[in-house]
Design a protein around this nucleic acid. Structure first.
Lengths: 179, 179
DNA sequence: CATGGTGTTCAAAAGGGCTTGAACTTTTTT
DNA sequence: AAAAAAGTTCAAGCCCTTTTGAACACCATG
């Protein structure tokens, strides 16, 4: 409202992304964060995906306003998860990165593996707890029962995640010409 | 090893929980944290559940080594989610708390609500992005297509969570005499 | 209606994870 | 093989969430 007629502000040319791209990358960032990953993992993948062509680390950095180090680390993760590939463009010196489309697959894979570790540790701890409670001075049958119930609950959660990952993978493959 | 014959140390009588109870509460704390809640929410609920009898805030505080304020806030949350109830014990002045058993139900409920908010926001943003990309100087059909794919992907994720929450609730109700 | 014990609030501190950026390594170019 | 450019690493800093604890509010009871 106060003198915006001609844009001559010299700084802040960084975030060079058009609004619609920013919306897309942020949306995917939010989703990926919901699933327990880092927001910027999602933003980088989304940018590569929506652009549809190989981009350099520099372009990513400037587009999403990240540091050099961050882009390096994020790309390493994405590559490791096999949802981004590093390619060489003939005449260009720097590496270029392209998005793979196996997005849900990667999410379910990583999620399942994380959850697997957790559940096995919980199972062990609950088993130990049960044993200790059993060997206590005055073992209380009701307490033992409740621990058993929690053990079974842990099993159910594992099952639930299994079903979830299977289901979502199916859903995506149903639409394999989709993503 | 240096003069512990008679216990006259005035501090540190806090963590009064037997090891097996600590194992149980920590295990549940880990699980609940995995689902995006606070570790201590799980620990408090687990303690109340495994004890099976009403406990005062003080007992919880001493058992889990939390501050007065923390217990107050955590109990408020748990009450609000209806997995802990506040009861009055006849001769006693302080409130007592007991665990409800609808644990999975609460998790799926809260999770679904959180996810619902997220998905609707993402849907809106992607729709806006698509519109803006359409109205751009030189609209690229492939880009529009990719945005559409992401929109559909968002729908699939919602579906996946729906199925998951339904499934896990069913699984728990299958064993309704269990928890 | 004072007293003591209990419960709540919230500003400040602690904690924990993510990002930064400078130093360093590797790769490419000349 | 030197120089330049790109990529990697990680300690330090930043930021956001959680926890603390002192002050305050709220009872019950004498």
């Amino acid at each position: 409202m106060k003198g915006y007629t001609h844009r001559e502000n010299e700084r802040e040319p960084t975030t060079s992304l058009p609004l619609w791209e920013a919306l897309v990358t942020d949306a995917v960032g939010d989703v990926i964060e919901f699933w327990g990953f880092k927001r910027n993992h999602g933003r980088v993948w989304a940018l590569l995906y929506v652009r549809g062509e190989p981009m350099t680390a520099r372009q990513i950095r400037e587009g999403l306003d990240l540091s050099k180090g961050a882009v390096s680390m994020i790309n390493r993760d994405l590559e490791h998860w096999a949802i981004v590939e590093r390619v060489r463009i003939p005449q260009q010196s720097a590496w270029h990165y392209v998005a793979e489309v196996a997005f849900m697959k990667m999410i379910t894979r990583v999620l399942k593996q994380r959850e697997g570790k957790l559940i096995s540790r919980v199972a062990t701890d609950l088993k130990d707890a049960r044993k200790l409670a059993e060997e206590a001075d005055e073992p209380d049958d009701e307490v033992l029962e409740r621990i058993e119930r929690m053990q079974r609950l842990a099993g159910l959660m594992q099952q639930a995640v299994d079903i979830f990952t299977k289901t979502s993978r199916l859903d995506v493959s149903d639409t394999r010409d989709l993503l």
